[in-house]
Simulated assay, not measured.
Amino acid sequence: MANSTSGESVAERIVRVLETFDADRSAQTPSDIARRAGLPTSTAHRLVGELVATGLLDRDDSGRVLLGMHLWEVAQRGSRALRLRQAALPFMERVQTRVREHTQLAVLEQGEALFLERLSHPHAVSNITRIAGRLPLHASSSGLVLLAFADAGLRERVLASPLAAVTPDTVTDPRELEALLARIRREGLVVARGFVEPVSTGIAVPIRQRRDVIAALSVVLPREAPTAGAVDELRRAAAAVGRVLAGPED
C-alpha cells in the first residue's frame, strides 16, 4: 500500500486507528481518534470514513465511531484463536464449576499475554483481566507460563528489560524471575500470589499442542485460598484441550 509522507503505509495507519479503541473507549469522535492515533485530523477523518463504508467501523446516532460488526465477523473466520477457544471452552467451564472464581485462557502475542476467554462467578475475587485484554508476561500467572516456555530470545529480552512492579509482590529482579521461569518449566505450573492484585492468587498451567506450548490456562482465586484442587483441575483440563487440538494420532 502507498506510504504517507511520514513513510507509514495505509495499513499501518489503519492499525493505529483501530488500536485507539479499547473496553473503556468503545465510542469516539474522529477528532479523538486523530489525537490518540497521532494522525493529522484530515487523515483520520478520511480513514474513518473509508472504514465506516466497509463496515469495519460504525457510527452511533450521535455520530461517534465504534468498531463495526463486520470487523468482528472477519476476525472470526478461520481464526487460530477461535479454534483454540472452541477447544478449550468446554473444559474451562468444567474448571469454573469447581473453582467458582475466574477461569482464563491466554496466548502469547507481541510480548504480552493476550486473553481470549474468561469465565467469572458474579461474586468472585477482584480480577483486572478482560477478554481481548493484555497483561505483562512477568506479572500475570498466564504470562509467566507463556514466557517460561517461549523461545530463549524472548526470555532474554524480557529479562534485560525494566520489569515494572504491578504490585509489591510482582517479581522484578531478573535473577529471581529467571529462577522462577526455570521452576515453571520443571513443574509445569505457577502459583503467583499477589503478583497482579494484592488480594488474588493466579495459578496457570501450559496447554500443549503435541509438544509445543501454545497457550496458558489459569484460574484466579482469593489470595489465601487453597490451591491444590485448582491445580489438579487445571492440569486435567489443559491435558484434555491438548488432546482435542492434537486430533487423532497418525
Rank of each mutant, 00 (worst) to 15 (best):
S126Y: 07
R211Y: 14
A34Y: 05
L159F: 04
L108C: 10
R186M: 10
R243E: 15
E224V: 08
L114M: 13
G247S: 04
G55W: 11
E73L: 06
S62G: 14
F195Y: 15
H70Q: 14
L159C: 01
S4C: 12
S79W: 08
R98H: 11
R80G: 08
R175Q: 15
F149N: 12
A2K: 07
V74Q: 11
D61K: 11
R59M: 12
R236F: 07
A240H: 06
L137M: 11
A124M: 08
T54H: 08
A165S: 14
L114A: 09
E50F: 10
V15W: 09
A204Y: 07
S141T: 02
A37R: 00
S9W: 06
A230H: 04
R46Y: 14
E73P: 03
V190R: 00
L105V: 09
G63Y: 01
H70P: 04
R236T: 08
T201G: 03
E109S: 13
G38P: 05
A228F: 12
H45M: 06
V171A: 11
Q104Y: 01
V107H: 06
D169F: 05
A124N: 03
T103C: 10
R36G: 03
E176V: 11
V171N: 10
A44T: 01
E117H: 13
Q110K: 08
P222R: 15
E8A: 13
L66K: 13
D61M: 09
A132Q: 13
L217C: 06
P226V: 05
R186P: 00
S26D: 12
T20K: 07
P136E: 13
R236D: 08
A237H: 03
V158A: 02
V171M: 13
G68V: 07
E233D: 15
F115C: 07
A139T: 01
H138E: 00
G63D: 08
L217W: 00
L66H: 15
A246I: 02
L189N: 02
S126I: 01
S140L: 08
R118H: 09
A164R: 15
E156C: 06
G194S: 08
S9D: 09
D32P: 07
V52A: 06
S120G: 14
D61R: 13
L234I: 00
G133V: 05
D151R: 15
G68P: 00
L189F: 12
S62C: 09
Q104D: 13
I14F: 10
Q28C: 09
A192T: 02
L39G: 06
G188Y: 04
A240F: 00
I33C: 00
P40M: 10
A228G: 11
M92E: 07
E73T: 00
R64K: 05
G242E: 13
R36E: 10
R210G: 02
R35V: 09
V10Q: 14
V190D: 07
S140D: 09
V219F: 01
A88C: 09
A240Y: 01
L84I: 00
S26F: 07
A23K: 08
V244W: 07
G153E: 14
D232G: 04
R185S: 10
Q209E: 15
M1Y: 04
R236W: 08
R235A: 04
S4E: 11
T5A: 15
P40Y: 14
T129Y: 10
A132S: 13
T129R: 07
R13F: 03
